[in-house]
Design a protein around this nucleic acid. Structure first.
Lengths: 113, 113
DNA sequence: ATTTCATTTCTATTTTTCTGGAAATATGTT
DNA sequence: AACATATTTCCAGAAAAATAGAAATGAAAT
């Protein structure tokens, strides 16, 4: 994680619709949600939502996967953790900052984080 | 911490100059830095920097204090932690997310965090 | 192969944010 | 009081981001 990608991720989250979409996906968990479903829940036109999902995806915060006719989106926990890690890493400037425990992404990654 | 202030803080950090300024202040620690010094280090016109410092301050991420002729800025660790807490709080959606350890702001707050 | 459905890309418009010089404000100095 | 210094506010222009309708794409069903 460098400054550029941190800014991209922060900027992606720093928007009403995108933060809402991201949190929706975080709550949806492994199952994820189809673009249309997200648009319905958030009450957004498809084109608008698509724009925002692309932003989140460009920042690496969410992941896309086709399932039948729909495109399923999922939160990318490791990317989320990388961002938090970056922010805490540059925090406290050498003093005893013990920021470590972030969000364990999923069962199969818990031991390697 | 609610969505609105989280977005404000995220947006404040999601900018080249502001992230640089914030990290500079984080590294400066308790001592802080005068606006002019920050402007010099970052190579920005005073008016431009002032705009960005105001953004960070509006988001509550930094704090201002006059010292002689200069305005000293300091990072606001508790606010930083609140933001990280908000992001991790809404992470993992009820599963075993143990995100807790953030950045201990200062010696006198370490025991109450 | 054609149709259908879900989603994205295109495009123009609007809105917001960023920039930096000049003037104003606030503090400290002589 | 007059001056010097540090920083902010004002302003207008420039740049970037958001919006949403319409057209295009892509995958699957018939």
């Amino acid at each position: 994680m460098n400054a550029e990608s941190a800014i991209e991720a922060l900027g992606a989250l720093a928007h009403d619709h995108r933060l809402a979409a991201f949190r929706l996906l975080v709550q949806a968990g492994e199952r994820g949600m189809a673009a249309g479903a997200i648009a319905t829940v958030l009450g957004l036109p498809n084109s608008s939502l698509s724009f925002h999902l692309a932003q989140l995806r460009g920042a690496g915060l969410i992941v896309q996967q086709r399932q039948h006719r729909s495109l399923i989106y999922r939160a990318n926990y490791p990317a989320m953790n990388a961002l938090l890690g970056y922010l805490t890493e540059n925090c406290c400037a050498g003093s005893d900052c013990t920021a470590e425990a972030l969000c364990p992404p999923s069962d199969n990654e818990r031991k390697s984080a």
